[in-house]
């Protein structure tokens, strides 16, 4: 039944583009306006209108004019709430969105920045099965974090998002579709276990001093330096904090991760293995470089380097 409905919907979207104009991908920013906001009564709204009808017939039957007035007031307030519902979406703007990093199969964090010129309450965004509610105070934009389900590595187009609201009374539900024309990059999943990378013969040359026990020099404090490395006595004589720089022979050799080394495997297995190596290298704070067909990334370390390598892996054909 549900499949049939979705099939019907897809066909309708293909045949009647005008009907679904606002469901196709479009560029940010997207501002909601009356042509793309739909509104229907909720189940509670339908029940409530039945109640109003009962009250109306009762008041008329007993020719109780005070009751009739009350019923009319309640009915009119419900009708007015429909406009408020509409207004809670009208003029809402999705300014930009930011995607986090995620490995295929794990949820990817999307951050949507909504803004509006007036305060809004109880706006909700649906992505898949999850719903997030948020409010806007009319000044700052609201950052809404959503979890996007991922399956495969590579570029994944953003799905259609539904923005909806039943504010203020829950009698009506207004909704609109947001389909940002944007894709997110999903990193490949690493294999669970496998051999370590083969160290090259020339790795020995790469040995260099780093972070040892011997005091090499004093340098300026940088954010993130451990507190116990601060040279307090020396710092007292200077304007800036000084930090003791230690060196030691690097125990981990430089890794040269190479696509060509993994000759016996198919492409996806190679990618999975390289991803695992990258993870290990990152965890062990190694210095590493990556060679991929058509893309050679020189040696480096740190999260940016890691992201660069993973992005390159993810984008392999």
């Amino acid at each position: 039944m549900r499949d049939l409905l979705q099939q019907l919907q897809r066909r309708a979207e293909r045949r009647l583009p005008a009907l679904t104009r606002y469901r196709r991908p479009e560029r940010l920013p997207i501002e909601l306006h009356r042509r793309r906001i739909y509104i229907v009564p909720t189940g509670f709204g339908l029940g409530f209108s039945v109640l109003l009808l009962v009250m109306l017939v009762g008041a008329l039957n007993y020719s109780n004019n005070a009751g009739l007035l009350l019923t009319c007031l309640l009915g009119a307030a419900s009708a007015a709430s429909m406009l408020v519902t509409f207004r809670s979406l009208d003029g809402l703007r999705l300014g930009h969105l930011r995607a986090g990093h995620a490995v295929a199969g794990q949820p990817l964090e999307l951050t949507l920045a909504f803004d509006s010129r007036r305060p809004r309450n109880a706006v909700r965004v649906d992505l898949g099965d999850s719903t997030v509610a948020f409010a806007l105070d009319g000044h700052a934009s609201a950052l809404v974090k959503l979890a996007l389900r991922t399956e495969r590595r590579g570029w994944q187009p953003l799905p259609r998002l539904r923005v909806w609201s039943t504010w203020p009374l829950g009698l009506f539900r207004a909704w609109s579709w947001l389909h940002p024309e944007q894709s997110v990059l999903v990193w490949p999943r690493a294999e669970a276990a496998g051999p370590p990378p083969q160290a090259r013969a020339d790795d020995a040359r790469q040995l260099r001093l780093h972070r040892g026990d011997e005091l090499a020099a004093l340098r300026d404090y940088r954010a993130g330096d451990p507190q116990r490395h601060v040279a307090w006595k020396a710092s007292a004589r200077h304007e800036n904090l000084l930090v003791k720089d230690f060196e030691q022979p690097q125990s981990h050799p430089h890794w040269q991760l190479d696509w060509r080394q993994l000759g016996g495997l198919d492409d996806e297995a190679r990618i999975a293995r390289l991803a695992r190596w990258l993870n290990e290298a990152q965890a062990q704070r190694r210095h590493y470089s990556l060679w991929l067909p058509g893309n050679e990334i020189p040696g480096g370390s740190g999260p940016l380097h890691y992201a660069r390598c993973m992005n390159a892996l993810a984008q392999l054909p």
């Binding site: 007993y62 009739l68 009319c72 007031l73 408020v84």
Partner: peptide
């Protein structure tokens, strides 16, 4: 919300057709 709804409510009150005889036993 109620205040904004008041004009519509009054109009409906004036114009909702009254029953000339009750549908069931008036109390």
């Amino acid at each position: 919300l109620t205040a904004a709804a008041l004009p519509l409510a009054l109009l409906a009150f004036l114009l909702v057709p009254r029953l000339s005889s009750p549908l069931w036993g008036a109390p």
